[in-house]
Simulated scan of single mutants.
Amino acid sequence: MKKIISILLIAGGVYLGYEGVTQLQNSSASLKVGKLELSAKNETSATTAYIYLGFGVLLVIGGVYVLRKS
């Protein structure tokens, strides 16, 4: 039973990490016209992405801990 829980924690952590990286990459955009370059960044989306990454790391660490303990 503990193996199943640890595998689910690790899988959830990997999923949240993937979502965080994807959202972080999509949080900024740039436009280049000649020598002029304009860029914009969505701070709210970037903050949410960092939260996803943090929770993903915590879930992976928790899953590895439970797996090693069993």
Rank of each mutant, 00 (worst) to 15 (best):
K2R: 11
K3N: 06
K3Y: 09
I4L: 10
I5Q: 09
I7T: 10
I7V: 11
L8T: 08
L8D: 04
L9R: 01
L9D: 03
I10M: 06
A11Y: 05
G12Q: 02
G12D: 09
G12H: 05
G12V: 04
G13N: 01
G13I: 00
G13P: 12
V14L: 13
Y15V: 11
Y15C: 08
L16S: 05
L16M: 11
L16T: 02
G17P: 13
G17N: 09
G17Y: 01
Y18C: 05
Y18P: 10
Y18L: 11
Y18A: 10
E19G: 02
G20T: 01
V21H: 06
T22C: 05
T22W: 06
Q23C: 02
Q23S: 08
Q25V: 14
Q25I: 13
Q25M: 15
S27P: 12
S28Y: 13
S28L: 03
S28E: 14
S28K: 11
A29M: 13
A29E: 15
S30K: 06
S30D: 08
L31R: 12
K32S: 15
K32M: 10
V33W: 02
V33H: 06
G34K: 05
G34E: 07
G34S: 08
G34L: 09
K35M: 11
L36P: 00
L36A: 10
L36D: 04
L36N: 08
L36R: 03
E37Y: 01
E37G: 10
E37P: 09
S39C: 08
A40P: 13
A40V: 15
A40S: 06
A40L: 13
A40T: 12
A40Y: 07
K41Y: 03
K41P: 15
K41C: 09
K41N: 14
N42M: 08
N42G: 11
E43R: 07
E43H: 04
S45Y: 03
S45C: 07
A46D: 11
A46F: 05
T47E: 14
T47Y: 07
T48E: 11
T48S: 10
T48Q: 12
T48N: 13
A49G: 14
Y50W: 12
Y50T: 14
I51V: 15
Y52V: 01
Y52D: 09
Y52G: 03
Y52S: 10
L53P: 15
L53V: 12
L53D: 09
G54M: 00
F55D: 13
F55Y: 14
G56M: 02
G56K: 03
V57G: 05
L59I: 03
V60S: 01
V60E: 00
V60Q: 00
V60D: 01
V60Y: 00
I61L: 13
G62F: 08
G62I: 05
G62L: 14
G63P: 11
V64H: 04
Y65Q: 04
R68Y: 07
K69G: 00
S70P: 07
S70H: 04
